[in-house]
Nucleic acid binder design. Structure first.
Length: 320
DNA sequence: AATGAAGGCAACCGCAGAAGG
DNA sequence: GCCTTCTGCGGTTGCCTTCAT
């Protein structure tokens, strides 16, 4: 099955970084003539590059509508959300982010978002809690215990908080949080193995994406489509803090476009932790937390992680 | 100040599918 | 229907910059 290489033209072709002169040539040629056939373009434009290289340079760098610079929070959320639905379909994701290229999004994902999800214990491909989370559990627990015992471990607690004896509260909260994650992971595994994931048709996803692309959050319509498969699964996420259950209904989980994550985040935020009735039990650490959530039904279910784990959330950063 | 490690990004490579003869 | 060519996509690599020691 021979397919001739695209760059078999006579003479040595240049590789590597583009010079400003080459950029100028390419830009001027395309502005004047359009790109037409990429294969012939280098010759016509007087460039010693292969057509593929020219196309890449144009689409990823020279195109006038390219938006450069840091990704905004909205863009970040959109990427995470679309990735949870589409996977590594960078070009498809890019179509919903005007001015961003697939390459740029891919790089951003690989260098930032993917790492962040992994750090948080989530599988970047499925956006679910990682099943190998259990492997890391002993280390996490040991770390949490160690940090709880070190007076200097959490600088932000050394002010008013530490003096007031808040550390044990946090310690207990962290362990309970860990427990909730474990529970949800276990439930997820169970629901997957039970074959509960329902298929969301491609057309549903596309329809949802079409609508989602226009909203700044970019989530509501896609949430609706993705969660449609789980509409019948009335779930509750509940965590017990020293015997007092906190329940989040599916109205919160599915209804707002913000979803469970954001609401849970509120529950677990340091400032809004529910009262811990018995702190002496904190050392035992063993919350009677019960959590159940399928985190959406199918593999295509979106999860708004950024709202769940904001970068600057002191609880999360401290926990990690 | 020097050096090595890590991060970030641009560019390349190879494959798959569409288009055309 | 088959073959070739071209384009687009996703994965990967390699270089440059920044950070840590």
């Amino acid at each position: 099955m021979g397919r001739s290489p695209c760059c078999d033209e006579s003479g040595p072709l240049k590789k590597g970084p583009w010079t400003p002169e080459e950029d100028e040539k390419l830009l001027q040629f395309i502005q004047k003539n359009g790109h037409g056939s990429w294969r012939n373009l280098p010759r016509l434009a007087g460039l010693k590059r292969c057509g593929k290289s020219c196309r890449l340079r144009w689409t990823n760098y020279l195109r006038p509508d390219i938006k450069r610079g840091k990704f905004s929070q909205d863009e970040e959320q959109t990427i995470l959300h679309l990735h949870s639905i589409l996977g590594n379909k960078w070009s498809a994701i890019a179509t919903h982010l005007p001015g961003r290229t697939d390459n740029e999004i891919k790089n951003f994902w690989n260098t930032h978002l993917k790492k962040r999800l992994i750090q948080m214990g989530f599988d970047p491909m499925t956006h679910r809690p990682r099943t190998d989370f259990f492997d890391a559990l002993p280390q996490l627990v040991a770390l949490a215990a160690l940090r709880g015992q070190l007076p200097s471990a959490t600088p932000q607690l050394q002010g008013a908080g530490a003096a007031a004896g808040v550390a044990p509260f946090l310690q207990a909260a962290k362990l309970q949080y860990l427990q909730c994650l474990l529970q949800s992971a276990a439930t997820t595994i169970a629901s997957v193995s039970a074959g509960s994931s329902a298929a969301v048709s491609a057309s549903d996803v596309e329809a949802a994406l079409g609508a989602a692309a226009c909203s700044p959050q970019g989530t509501a319509a896609a949430d609706a489509a993705a969660s449609a498969s789980t509409a019948d699964d009335h779930q509750q996420v509940s965590c017990t803090f020293s015997g007092e259950p906190i329940t989040v209904s599916d109205d919160l989980l599915l209804g707002s476009g913000c979803g469970a994550a954001g609401d849970l985040e509120n529950y677990f935020h340091v400032d809004s932790l529910p009262p811990l009735a018995d702190l002496s039990d904190a050392a035992d650490g063993l919350c009677s937390a019960t959590a159940s959530s399928s985190f959406g039904g199918g593999a295509s279910s979106p999860l708004p992680w950024p709202e769940f784990f904001p970068d600057d959330d002191p609880f999360i950063t401290d926990f990690l």
